[in-house]
Nucleic acid binder design. Structure first.
Lengths: 343, 343
DNA sequence: CTGAAAGCGCTTACAG
DNA sequence: CTGAAAGCGCTTACAG
């Protein structure tokens, strides 16, 4: 019995190719235990090699592609990224399932023992990290489906990831401040180990070095991508002997924290202190004063993530592990020229 | 042929009960058109009455319940509501599908012609409206699955909806301002036709009337639940002969707009103007000054929505069409006593 | 532990 | 338009 092209393998075909009866193959498929271990192994191998799928599974696959979007929390960036994903999903006729990522990956699928195929459709996985937490993504890679990570805390080789040009963004934010005449510019960063934070910081360093300015150790502070870090960070910077005239915050949350604390201390932004954020969230747009921020193309990142995932689902080669979309500096009210008295 | 309890109807059973052959029933199930219209009608009726489901459909139903969450946009409230839904979904082992609601309801399902059963599982639908848009929900009700609407623009009878105590919230916001000594209090409302807006406004009116204060027509302005409405609204109020000393904004977006415009005009909040928002979003927490706001229990609203939906999916009676969770006034920095000079 | 045989539920080509 | 008959793909009770 040989399969002609386009023909799907049947139970009978598998049985014949292993040299057992259809009954035995059926037992293996149904997870019964009255099958010798060796026989079972042979049959599973043959099923896998032939790409056998039960009629039910085939029917499942007939419908639209299902992509799971796993979140590990809610950041200000998320709605826009999600919007991009949903928009593209609707264009491509793809279904989106939503789940909260537990570090250990989807649990329910793993507790079926000898059934080799899952009975629920999931063709690919997009992980949208909040970038505020360094959870391990490896268990998710163990799945045999394509995975794309959006804006990862750390991009790991082997996983396709979508990010923005963090280095260039950090550099343009800093250059903007330099052009306004600032010389003592602080970097209120994210977690030291976060790759996106490192890239933003190196962009900052690069701009300073190009202007012949040394990096003052006390003016670079790492912390979490949270409002509280901005509040505490400003307090720390103000106590420094090299009190900065401008701050580049590693994300908009931190920047908003700076804004809050500045307001409390009656420090005027931008008159007394210039401030640049990162992300380009709606929050930055609506803060008072409106925040100058390095905008990530969040919607496009969502769109790109789904497109890259679908290409993998369809078996295409991507040619790269990493997509970086360009950031753009959006100048609003929180940055201004250094005032003579400040220096 | 009679079905004993617990036995599922087969094709043969349906055929026999209608008095046709299995072939004909099979044709109807597969949407073939070589069946007389009258026969088809009879068979469809019998299938429906017997609750016939194909083996594939039965297998589909064996897995976890699938709930679709349909969004019609992204508001500041959405992430928290979604968080509540996902949290509960994970507790209950329910799968969540996400889609963008097009006013006309899911399209793809409707273009199969004579196939009476959809081949994709969807046990219930939660619609999360942004409350900024009055789209018609009736097409979604046409689905034969339970529907729950969260925070609807207008609650319609026949659809289960989850909301907050908008009237009580509007009243407590206004009472708070009255207690601070304010007498000329404006209401910067949402769309006049929006039910939640009306409830909030009537709460406002009620508090004023109880204090023996007449409602000044010029101090009640309706508009969209958007930042821009806050900006324009403040401008309009300032031009009024009865310039208010306090504003109750119908949501946090509007309030943020007021904050922006006040800042631009160098009007200090709360010294020159007190301001209360509605929703209790993160935005309100992080604005400068931090916004006093009537908080909706957004997470609980999400949780309640999913729970109410699951009860319906499981065939329980809800006993009510409307769940209202209590709002709570969160006092922050944007409200303060009237200053003598203001009055 | 294995498989021949009976059977289930559904589909399809085709005769009428 | 309808249905008897053949058949498909899979499962199961049971003999060995």
């Amino acid at each position: 019995m040989i399969l002609s092209k386009g023909e799907r393998p049947t139970l009978a075909y598998i049985a014949q190719s292993v040299g057992v009866s259809t009954s035995t193959v059926s037992k293996v498929l149904n997870g019964r235990d009255d099958v010798a271990a060796a026989t079972r192994t042979d049959i599973l191998e043959a099923l896998r090699k032939a790409g056998y799928r039960s009629p039910a599974q085939r029917r499942l696959t007939a419908g639209p592609i299902v992509v799971e979007v796993a979140l590990d929390g809610f950041s200000a960036c998320l709605p826009t990224v999600l919007g991009g994903i949903l928009e593209t999903a609707s264009e491509e006729g793809v279904d989106v399932r939503l789940s909260i990522a537990s570090g250990s990956g989807p649990k329910r699928d793993s507790d079926r023992k000898s059934q080799p195929m899952p009975n629920k459709r999931r063709d690919g996985l997009i992980i949208v990290t909040t970038a505020s937490d360094d959870s391990d993504l490896t268990p998710l890679r163990a799945q045999s489906i394509p995975v794309v990570v959006v804006d990862p805390f750390n991009s790991r080789s082997g996983v396709v990831s979508i990010g923005a040009t963090n280095w260039a963004g950090g550099r343009s934010a800093t250059e903007h401040l330099l052009n306004l005449g600032h010389r003592r510019i602080a970097y209120l960063g994210g977690p030291a180990s976060a790759e996106c934070n490192q890239a933003r910081m190196h962009g900052y360093c690069s701009a300073l070095m190009l202007s012949g300015i040394d990096i003052t150790p006390g003016l670079v502070i790492h912390g979490k991508f949270h409002v509280e870090h901005g509040v505490a960070g400003l307090a720390e910077l103000l106590a420094s002997p090299n009190r900065p005239t401008a701050i580049f915050a590693a994300n908009d949350d931190i920047a908003v924290g700076v804004l809050r604390e500045a307001h409390r201390r009656r420090i005027r932004v931008p008159e007394d202190l210039s401030l640049v954020g990162f992300d380009g969230t709606v929050m930055a747009e609506n803060s008072v004063p409106a925040l100058t921020s390095v905008a990530q193309p969040l919607r496009d990142m969502g769109r790109t993530a789904l497109r890259a995932l679908l290409r993998q689902v369809r078996g295409e080669q991507l040619g790269t592990d990493r997509f970086e979309l360009t950031t753009s500096l959006v100048i609003r009210e929180s940055t201004g020229p250094v005032i003579a008295g400040q220096t």
